[in-house]
Design a protein around this nucleic acid. Structure first.
Lengths: 224, 224
DNA sequence: GAGGCTAATGACCGCGGGGTCATCAGTACT
DNA sequence: AGTACTGATGACCCCGCGGTCATTAGCCTC
């Protein structure tokens, strides 16, 4: 057998190609995967490069530093979700209850479908070490999402669809199960005795939340 | 003024003391603090030493490795909580609803009172990189806690105190707000525009959970 | 107070990974 | 085909930290 058979040794198949326009996206995709899998510190830029089909040097050609790459990766992953959510709120007409359901389901599906869980988890965790990152993502994503939820829930309360409750806190409670799922999945899932049936989990959490917000339930304060 | 005034230069105040018995606890406490503040990777054993009033070398004198120290720190912090919870379940007589409230409040207070939040956050996050750690803590703490909660909730369902629901998932949903609080506090709190009123948050989450579990509420499945 | 046991030290090592840069080799244009 | 431009490379630097160990010095006993 002749190695390098076709067209003989005319085209030694270039070891690499110039692809200035497509590189950044490829690198970003690889970064999203690996950051999501291993976390910030454990991610080696060399590995990111390899998965993106280039070398560490090339990564630095398109991104200033590891931190910048991380920011870009998260931003790119979160943006569609935030946009979709905001759009849903804008367009929606109907009960606040339905809208809330829609928002939560939207987020859930985003997380299920994409690499987002890994990055959500990162946001929640690794960011602690980098206050500027934390601030950025807190303002850009968390606060923004919370503002939307507060709006929706406030409307619900006013309309009598939801029980009277502390809207600010409730908006946080309502997303907690989603965030928990993200974290759980990337921390204990690979190691747990039995996997969580994630759709079951989401359904139950939605059920509990909606029932918990419903004014039909007699308001009986918890006793110790 | 005479520096080193009292008893002149007779006792040059020994640069260090032998305290074989108290060192481990001191080091552990320092480790709990710093791990909690900065996360696993960002924790320098030298800093742990400094805060414990000794040097890095001494840390290694009492703990095999960084990983071992971490394990010990988490174990020590979690143990009382697990114990208290198990005891509460054992001793309790009365409604499942009350018991659930008690358990959640117990955990909340533990987290509030101690350095636990920081370590809980770590468990949820950094452990992902160290599968053996993840497995250990998943089995030792998370599964154990979940088993208890399932038991309580199952009892509640049977007694008609709780709505019929997927007990396994519900047990997870119910703790999500606590874990979220732990994570939030150590990630975004220092950076957020306004701090979460944590007691308010807990109260609201408890309210929603209890109402969400209550069978009084008409069981109306969520529509999209 | 002298001697010995060992807790504690801190200088040291190795290595892994972020970041750099001289060099190479695809590519496009003439 | 030749040439200039630059995308891509990978060998290299450097530093920070986990972990080690010969040495030092506190403490206890006799």
């Amino acid at each position: 057998m002749n190695h390098r058979s076709e067209s003989d040794d005319r085209k030694p198949a270039p070891r690499w190609r110039r692809r200035k326009d497509t590189r950044p996206a490829e690198i970003l995709a690889a970064a999203q995967e690996i950051f999501g899998e291993r976390g910030y510190d454990a991610t080696r830029l060399e590995d990111v490069g390899r998965r993106a089909g280039c070398t560490k040097g090339t990564v630095f050609l398109y991104y200033e530093s590891k931190a910048e790459l991380f920011k870009a990766a998260v931003r790119e992953a979160m943006a569609p979700m935030v946009r979709d959510t905001e759009q849903a709120v804008e367009e929606h007409q109907g009960s606040a209850r339905e809208l809330l359901t829609k928002i939560l389901r939207l987020r859930w599906e985003h997380m299920e479908r994409t690499r987002l869980t890994g990055l959500v988890k990162l946001l929640l965790t690794e960011t602690g070490k980098y206050p500027d990152l934390a601030r950025f993502y807190n303002d850009e994503f968390f606060d923004r999402g919370q503002a939307l939820l507060r709006k929706v829930m406030q409307k619900g309360v006013e309309r009598g669809e939801f029980r009277k409750l502390d809207v600010e806190q409730a908006a946080r409670v309502v997303v907690a199960p989603l965030l928990f799922a993200a974290v759980w999945r990337h921390t204990f899932e690979p190691v747990a005795s039995a996997p969580i049936e994630l759709d079951e989990y989401f359904a139950t959490s939605l059920e509990i939340m909606l029932a918990g917000l419903d004014p039909a339930h007699l308001h009986e304060p918890a006793r110790t």
